[in-house]
Design a protein around this nucleic acid. Structure first.
Length: 579
RNA sequence: UGGGGUGUAGCCAAGUGGUAAGGCACAAGGUUUUGAUCCUUGCAUGCGUUGGUUCGAAUCCAGCCACCCCAGCCA
């Protein structure tokens, strides 16, 4: 086991699939490029909750390290205190642990390195590679030029080293107000790559930081801090998403313009005799899922506007939401492995995710019977008060999951959808005069349909064939099987049926003016009169079940109350019949 | 119209000069006391496109087309 190993083996995970990052690392290892080390990092900014897209990156970074006896750090990229908070730090750590990954050593923060980052900035100034600029944000935008036109040099670009040093020290000391000055790299205002047009390295922000409090009033930018943080942590492979590709020249420029000996001295490996090698950035395509919004800004918007109940609403693509929905860590890891890692923009079909969770839950979730829309059935040839205890397997293929007792009584409930007075062709369930198998029990015949004044079916009077317990009926075939629960001995529960949040494939598409117009009005349907078999509730009950013939459900711990459990539908069963 | 990328089936994706893996989805059978699971079979004479090189090209070369990213003191 290494630090980056996962908690459990994924029994269902096939062999690791080939991808360009695995190839690259194998080749780097073969060439001894980083002294045989593989050290990755997952660098979230604590400005929101992790979502399934982050899971792809987490799985990539941690598994690629584990596969090569390497290490993976967790580093909060916390250089913009304005948008960040401890709440997010805590949630992110918990999500990663829940997924089953363990970062190497202590949690890191870019803010851990603020002192080093400052000293390296002083070094860049000393080397005439950076200068203090007095242009406002607006002015600097004008000076930057455009996609097709080169920019112009800042009037401060040739400020003396001494003056730059003095100004930068005073920036740090808090002498200036926000925006009065910035520290910029001195690269090339005519570069076709706009990121190289003297990018800002430090900005003044008189604001409290969740980790460093009021110690600093200047904060480094992403481009400046990320590469140096990687170098300090001796990261070998810095994996990020495609939009940072244009930043790679800057990533390399900063590291190459710093004294490698001082970089080494500031790094975790300062005292080792390993070769000091600069980290290399490699980009891959981020995950996109259809019928889903992944933009942090949009997710936050949905939470704040109350479109969903919170970051952990079971309809959210956040890890917190998916967990509450009933997704297992293994299902998410398997999904991330199954989608691959490549450089082409792609949109993964939701069906892939649904397959991953069904695949895992089919194996691990015990079965139970729960009637969602109860219809009373009186079994005329079972005495009132009689309780027949039937033994049922918790899993049809896994005896190790044990058995449970299920009570059959005179009055039971079945689902309304399992009875039709005038069924369409192919209907295998109950009809007047027809027979159906009560799952795990007897074959039952419908003798009488009881209706109310409005003509609504309110009860069925049926009789069971007592010769059919564990046996096929004689002289006829009964195709349909129906789940049921004792009306007296079952437990009343609430069940939330979840469906996709959006009814368009891409709610973030440019031609969608407002995602609110694309919300699926049936993304949550709450049923409060469901009847669940008693064995499925209580202290020792499992948290996830397959409610037979319906789908996979999990107990909602947050909203369940004593005597009134609430279950969330994780996903339906595949249904080749379709209602 | 500058720079950086990407195009293999409905979706994801392997493939790195020797004749198109795999998964999802879908379809058809079989098993089944879950219309589930499981099993079997089918599903690209074709790799954005047009040319070229080669005995041989998804792989190499050239042109063209489409789409994505970049002008935050966000990450």
């Amino acid at each position: 086991m290494t630090d980056s190993d996962t908690d459990s083996k994924d029994s269902s995970a096939g062999p690791a699939s080939s991808n360009f990052i695995r190839h690259m690392i194998a080749q780097d290892l073969a060439e001894g490029k980083h002294g045989g080390r593989v050290h990755t990092r997952f660098p979230p900014e604590p400005n929101g909750y992790l979502h399934i897209g982050h899971a792809k990156s987490i799985c990539l970074n941690f598994t690629v390290a584990a596969e090569n006896e390497g290490l993976c750090n967790l580093r909060f990229d916390d250089t913009n205190p304005e948008k960040e908070s401890q709440e997010y730090v805590d949630a992110i750590k918990e999500n990663i642990n829940w997924l089953g990954f363990h970062w190497h050593g202590e949690v890191r923060y870019s803010s851990n390195y603020f002192s080093e980052l400052y000293e390296f900035a002083v070094q860049l100034i000393g080397r005439s590679c950076a200068f203090v600029c007095s242009l406002s944000a607006q002015e600097s935008r004008e000076y930057r030029g455009s996609l097709t036109e080169p920019g112009r040099n800042s009037p401060d670009r040739e400020r003396s080293v001494a003056e730059n040093l003095d100004l930068f020290a005073r920036m740090k000391a808090g002498e200036f107000e926000d925006g009065a000055y910035s520290l910029r790299a001195k690269i090339d205002m005519a570069s076709p790559n706009i990121n190289m047009r003297d990018p800002v390295l430090y900005r003044i922000r008189h604001i409290e930081h969740h980790q460093t409090g009021s110690e600093w009033c200047i904060y480094p930018t992403y481009d400046y801090s990320h590469c140096i943080s990687d170098a300090i942590e001796n990261i070998t492979h810095s994996l990020c998403t495609l939009e940072f590709e244009d930043h790679r020249p800057l990533y390399n420029w900063i590291l190459q313009h710093l004294d490698i000996h001082s970089l080494r001295a500031a790094s975790d490996l300062a005292d080792s005799d390993l070769d000091y090698v600069l980290p290399q950035q490699t980009e891959f395509a981020k995950l996109r899922l259809n019928y889903t919004m992944m933009g942090k800004r949009n997710l936050r918007e949905m939470v704040e506007s109350g479109v969903v109940s919170g970051w952990d609403d079971p309809r959210m693509p956040t890890l917190a939401g998916m967990r509450r929905r009933g997704f297992t860590p293994a299902s998410i890891r398997n999904f991330c492995e199954s989608i691959g890692v490549a450089r082409s923009d792609s949109v993964v079909d939701m069906a892939m995710l649904e397959h991953a969770i069904r695949d895992d839950l089919d194996k691990v979730a015990p079965r139970a019977m729960c009637v969602l829309n109860p219809l009373k059935v009186t079994l005329s040839n079972i005495e009132a008060g009689h309780v027949e205890s039937l033994s049922m397997a918790n899993h049809p293929k896994d005896e190790a999951m044990g058995r449970r007792q299920v009570a059959l009584t005179r009055e039971i409930v079945i689902d309304r959808a399992d009875f039709e007075e005038q069924p369409a062709a192919g209907f295998k369930r109950l009809r007047p005069g027809g027979e159906v198998r009560l799952r795990g029990a007897y074959v039952m015949r419908c003798d009488e349909v009881v209706k109310d004044d409005a003509g609504k079916v309110v009860e069925l009077v049926c009789s069971v064939d007592k010769a059919t317990l564990g046996k096929k009926p004689e002289g006829r075939k009964v195709k349909g099987v129906v789940h049921w629960v004792s009306a007296d001995l079952g437990v009343k529960v609430s069940v939330r049926l979840y469906d996709r949040l959006f009814n368009v494939e891409n709610p973030e598409a440019k031609d969608v003016a407002d995602y609110r117009a694309c919300l699926n009005p049936d993304s949550i349907v709450e049923l409060s009169d469901c009847m669940l078999e008693a064995a499925a509730v209580g202290e020792s009950a499992a948290s996830s079940f397959q409610f037979e013939r319906e789908g996979y459900f999990c107990l909602d711990v947050a909203d369940s109350r004593a005597g009134k459990p609430v279950f969330n539908r994780t996903i339906t069963l595949r249904d080749s019949w379709s209602d």
